[in-house]
Nucleic acid binder design. Structure first.
Length: 270
DNA sequence: CCGACAACCTGACGGC
DNA sequence: TGCCGTCAGGTTGTCG
C-alpha cells in the first residue's frame, strides 16, 4: 500500500487526531521492525505534545514540543489503525492522546520503521540527506530531471525508483507515470525522446495528485471507528492489469526487472 | 555505472 | 481440508 500518496493520505488522516494533542500513553509492543525503535522512544514521547504532522517522501513526520520528530515508515504492509477495538499481534506501537483517541501502528511484515530525530536537524537525518527532491515540490522541475537523467544508460524505471533522483515514487506510480508519458520502462534514462521527456514531470505529478485525491476518498473509510480499510478502488491504467486492454486496445504487458513486476503497454510506450 | 539477486517478514491466494 | 509455491506497495547491500 504505502507509496507517497498513501503516506500523504495517512498523514492527513492522523493530523486531526494527533495535532495539538498530548501523548498520554505510549506503548512499544514489538520494537524490532526493519530496525529497532530508539530504546528511549517511550520516555521521549510520553507526555509530549504533538505540534504538527508532515511527510518527506514515503516517511511520515510527527513533530513534538520536545524538539523531537517521530519519523515513521510504513514499509510494505504498514498502516495506522484508529481506535482499534482490540490490540493484536502486529500492532507494534500504540499511542493514546489526551482526548482519549488510540492509534496503533500495524505492520505484519515489519519492513517499516519508527525513529526519533531532532526536528531542527531533520534535513540531516541520514536517509533524508541522501534524498532527491519531492516530486510534488518546487524543485522537481523538467530542467532538474533532464539534468539528472542526462547521460544515464540505466533503465528509466530504475532511475525513477532511485530515491536520490526523486524521493517518494514506488513501483505502482512509476509504472503509471511512464505509461502516461509514453515512455518504455526499459528506455535508457538519457535517451528519451524530447517530447516524451517533456511529458514526464507533468505525468508524475498528475499520477500522484490523482492518487492522493483517491486516497482522500478512502480516508473516510480509513478513519471509521471500525478502523478497517476499504481498500483503494484501482483506477490504474497498467499496474496489475496484465492481459487487459490498454486505453489504446493493446494488451497490457508484464515483465520482471530486478525481481519486481513492471506493467506497460508496448504500443503506447517507446 | 549497471543489472541481478538476496535478505528482511508475514499473509493471501491459486493449484492440486 | 491442507500443503506448497508464488507473489506483494520498500530498502539496503553484495556481486560480477
Amino acid at each position: 500500500m504505502p507509496e507517497l500518496p498513501e503516506v500523504e493520505t495517512t498523514v492527513r488522516g492522523l493530523r486531526p487526531v494527533l495535532e495539538g494533542q498530548t501523548l498520554w500513553h505510549v506503548e512499544a509492543r514489538r520494537p524490532d521492525l526493519r530496525f529497532a525503535f530508539p530504546p528511549d522512544l517511550r520516555q521521549r514521547l510520553t507526555g509530549a505534545r504533538v505540534t504538527g504532522l508532515g511527510r518527506r517522501a514515503k516517511y511520515g513526520l510527527v513533530d513534538t514540543d520536545r524538539g523531537d520528530t517521530m519519523i515513521f515508515h510504513l514499509g510494505m504492509s504498514g498502516r495506522w489503525r484508529l481506535d482499534p477495538e482490540t490490540i493484536g499481534t502486529h500492532d507494534h506501537l500504540v499511542l493514546e492522546t489526551g482526548a482519549g483517541r488510540r492509534l496503533a501502528l500495524n505492520d505484519p511484515r515489519r519492513f517499516g520503521s519508527v525513529d526519533l530525530f531532532p526536528t531542527a536537524d531533520l534535513p540531516a537525518y541520514p536517509v533524508f540527506a541522501a534524498m532527491g527532491p519531492e516530486p510534488l515540490g518546487p524543485d522537481f522541475t523538467h530542467g532538474y530531471l533532464a539534468a539528472a537523467l542526462e547521460g544515464r544508460s540505466a533503465a528509466i524505471k530504475a532511475l525513477l525508483l532511485d530515491q536520490r533522483i526523486v524521493a517518494g515514487l514506488g513501483n505502482i506510480y512509476v509504472c503509471e507515470a511512464l505509461h502516461m508519458a509514453g515512455i518504455a520502462p526499459t528506455r535508457a534514462g538519457g535517451r528519451i525522446a524530447r517530447k516524451r521527456l517533456d511529458a514526464l514531470v507533468p505525468a508524475i505529478r498528475a499520477v500522484l495528485e490523482a492518487a492522493i485525491e483517491a486516497g482522500g476518498s478512502t480516508l473516510r473509510d480509513y478513519a471509521r471507528p471500525s478502523g478497517e480499510l476499504g481498500y483503494f478502488a484501482k483506477q490504474w491504467r497498467v499496474y496489475g492489469r496484465e492481459g487487459q486492454p490498454c486505453l489504446c486496445g493493446a494488451p497490457v504487458r508484464r515483465r520482471v526487472d530486478g525481481g519486481r513486476s513492471t506493467f506497460y503497454c508496448a504500443a503506447c510506450q517507446r
